[in-house]
Design a protein around this nucleic acid. Sequence first.
DNA 1: TTGGTTGGCGAAAACGTTTTCGTGTTAAGA
DNA 2: TCTTAACACGAAAACGTTTTCGCCAACCAA
Lengths: 353, 353
Amino acid sequence: MRKKVTLKQIAKELDVSISTVSKALRDSIEISEDTRQKVQAFAKLYNYRPNNIALSLKNRKTKTIGIIIPEIVQHFFSKVITGIEMVANRKGYNVIVALSNESFDKEVINMQMLANGSIDGFILSIAKETLQQQDYHHFTETINQGMPIVMFDRVVNEIKCDKVIVDDVKGAKKAVNKLIENGCKNIAIITTKDYVSVGKLRTQGYLEALDDHKINPESSLILKIEDKLLSEDHLDQLENDIEQLFKQNDKIDGIFAVNELYGVTAAKVARRYGYEIPEALQIVSFSDGVLSRHSTPSLSTISQHGQKIGESAAELLIKRLEMEDEEDFNEDEDEIFETVVIETNLIERESTK
Amino acid sequence: MRKKVTLKQIAKELDVSISTVSKALRDSIEISEDTRQKVQAFAKLYNYRPNNIALSLKNRKTKTIGIIIPEIVQHFFSKVITGIEMVANRKGYNVIVALSNESFDKEVINMQMLANGSIDGFILSIAKETLQQQDYHHFTETINQGMPIVMFDRVVNEIKCDKVIVDDVKGAKKAVNKLIENGCKNIAIITTKDYVSVGKLRTQGYLEALDDHKINPESSLILKIEDKLLSEDHLDQLENDIEQLFKQNDKIDGIFAVNELYGVTAAKVARRYGYEIPEALQIVSFSDGVLSRHSTPSLSTISQHGQKIGESAAELLIKRLEMEDEEDFNEDEDEIFETVVIETNLIERESTK
DNA sequence: TTGGTTGGCGAAAACGTTTTCGTGTTAAGA
DNA sequence: TCTTAACACGAAAACGTTTTCGCCAACCAA
């Protein structure tokens, strides 16, 4: 068991000072060719690597990005992390992940844990509970302490920071427009209750698309699912709700689902109910994941490009971090924040004509 | 923009020494009630929080766990992370995630990046490339430096460390036994090429189950898929291969797939081919994820309990870390390592009778 | 008065780096 | 021979903590 070797130990062993060792390893011209080689050889032999923590303390930056997301077991979020990790890694940053589990308290605690020097900046997507309570003090506080935040997907306007989002309204319109073009006359939407921003926006897109085509929305075609039903355990309840939708309205020939799970479940219920897909009923869902691709029938979806979102977020954050290095001026000038919009696109599969 | 306040600043402001501030905040009896209150009030006002990095340097431990996995966009791995994060968080640890993308080089580089003081120990699952090359020096090296490793799922015996695995052989036998009990006579297996340990073990379980029932294995019933076909992009190729399987053997009435994707794809191809599921063809796949649950027909699976694996791994690692604290003795005594086996279980859904 | 105890606090070391600023030796130039 | 420059290196500060030790004053007992 050979413990990690430090500068001090090398110095002692070679009977030189710590500074000499440090300089020799960094190829300083102050050091003679002779001792340089000696030191470097010794360091190599003992596999010396500078201690990251010491460097972080000295440089007052950790080269680490903190990610806080509601959950990781969701294709979209894993994709985002993949994207973040890719560009972070390329630029020499590490990535530390914390989960809020949609809980306000865990979000706050995790942020505090990480904000105490462990990381240089945050990339996060807001927990549902936080969005409901509309309590954002932990965000403003960390920003005030000089730690930059980049929000993605679930963002909130009153916080002044960089953001990466998809155009949910536009994406939803794309989906509904497609259904209308394909001849659907009675298009239902399966969406969530209103407090999570994206559900609201996608519903808005649905309504706008109808409006653009002079179609009157019917409340019997709008199904709002209680949010906890996303949690895999309440599948029966979800199926029941969807079945009610079909019962109440037998002319439905198109469905726009705001997420994959609603989409595949709708398809499942519909087929049990005797609908032929896509002949009698067409379905488009938001957020392209594994489910849409591999279900039978495979689902046409609006792709969110999670990985691109992650890459973009990481680039924004790192750009801001490296910017801070140069400018000692600008001390609390009012900064300018970017909002990057990642384009969605429609992927056609078996559930549409 | 109020930057983080340090002990030094508080000390200066209150005209006492740094040590006094530190002690006051930690309720030391050395400090008079008077100054204690003064300091604590000031600290609260300015929202003082000790700098984590400084603490890490002083204590020579970071309270951070490094995770290295091949990829994150896979239900199983996200579940494992969820488990790790849960117990880590409960015990005051953070979690830093790095991805190897199945590449040997990235695995090595990431380990080096993290091993230089950033973390206290690793939890990892070995990259495919590493398994092929059978080059494990980076594991032994980090272990030799005194940094503990816990491996899960894809492990390798020659490395002396704690491990968490599922009993792949037993799990596979459960699946195949179920098919046999349900009356299947010609059971095919869809598996991977041999270098990844789990594929091999599951194939072994298949063979053993057949043997237990005096059934002779037929090579025409064993389909080994080229590994890169898991990568979502080569779906057509995968479907083709499976189609060939059906063509070559028209008596197939049971399929055991070593992962979800093979399972759902087999179901899809089979139905296109005219098989009724589960009447004419029954399917069981390994590794329970979103796909199995939501596909039509939903798939019976052998559940791997990813979250439990993660929890178990984190507990093992943390136990070892806290153990190290106490024992200054034991210096390189030969240690004893645990291998925890997480039981699998069969989840019956629509693809079996 | 002397000696010892105790309460309250500060100095300094330590963790592992990097970097600035000396400082002593040698060689070159006048 | 004296001055100066170049060269090679070391001391020390700094990053932000915690903790050990020592110090001083005040108090008490003898």
